[in-house]
């Protein structure tokens, strides 16, 4: 698995497929920062909590796009060689882990940016821990979305794209979605009484495990 992950990280970095999601994430971060500053009354800078909520929520589409990038990065023939050398499902798992890890790294960088640019009058440690939890949850949701709406589950390119948009919007607006709670801000995802402690994380983990399992099971069963 280590060898597969090294290969997949090589594919990600050498193919420059990480650049577009990263630029998108940076733009959204900047937009959120500007909007937060405009909305804030009194002190010009928004609070660290809502900054971290924003940087986590926008991670959903970014990780979904990264996942698609990784799932479509290799030509079919190269995938077949890798699958022969390991197994189709292990190769698939390595691809998904790579996309998730890259997305989580972006999320950490985004959290770092918020830490530097937001005001932390309300304390540092508690909002940071809450924010990092939200970031992890949103990265998981993004990975689940990206896995479910791309090959091998959805093979058709246009359908995959439309489903990605729909799923991301749903993840943002559905009240049940952890990403929605994150968007509502003020650390609602982790603190809200509507969400028992740990439930959002557990739900996101279940979603990811289900999506990854389906994807790995289908890899090697569907043709290109």
């Amino acid at each position: 698995m280590i060898a597969l992950l090294r290969y997949q990280f090589g594919v990600l970095f050498r193919s420059h497929r990480w650049i577009l999601p990263m630029i998108g994430y940076a733009l959204l971060l900047a937009v959120g920062g500007a909007a937060g500053a405009a909305a804030a009354t009194g002190p010009v800078r928004q609070s660290l909590t809502s900054g971290l909520d924003w940087s986590a929520a926008i991670l959903v589409p970014v990780v979904a796009v990264l996942t698609r990038s990784m799932l479509t990065a290799e030509p079919g023939a190269a995938r077949a060689c890798i699958a022969t050398a390991s197994s189709p499902s292990r190769a698939q798992l390595a691809t998904l882990i790579t996309a998730f890890a890259a997305g989580a790294a972006l999320g950490l960088a985004g959290a770092g940016y918020e830490l530097l640019t937001s005001s932390h009058k309300a304390g540092l440690l508690a909002p940071l821990v809450t924010g990092l939890g939200t970031t992890l949850i949103c990265a998981l949701v993004g990975s689940a979305v990206g896995t479910l709406v791309n090959p091998p589950l959805i093979q058709h390119r246009a359908v995959a794209l439309l489903c990605t948009i729909a799923a991301v919007i749903l993840a943002w607006v559905a009240r049940i979605s952890p990403a929605n709670a994150a968007l509502r801000g003020n650390g609602a995802l982790v603190h809200s009484s509507a969400w028992p402690t740990g439930l959002p994380l557990a739900a996101a983990l279940v979603a990811v495990v289900a999506a990854w399992t389906a994807s790995c099971w289908l890899a090697g069963r569907r043709g290109e």
């Binding site: 290969y7 090589g10 594919v11 290799e74 079919g76 060689c81 050398a85």
Partner: peptide, 27 residues
């Protein structure tokens, strides 16, 4: 097993040696 596909139209950006190095580890 080792498998040689019918066509190997590589869209990969590795050099030949890097790719083979990765494949040797995976094997």
């Amino acid at each position: 097993a080792g498998y040689v596909p019918e066509r190997f139209p590589s869209g990969l950006t590795f050099s030949a040696r890097e790719y083979l190095r990765h494949m040797s580890r995976i094997h």
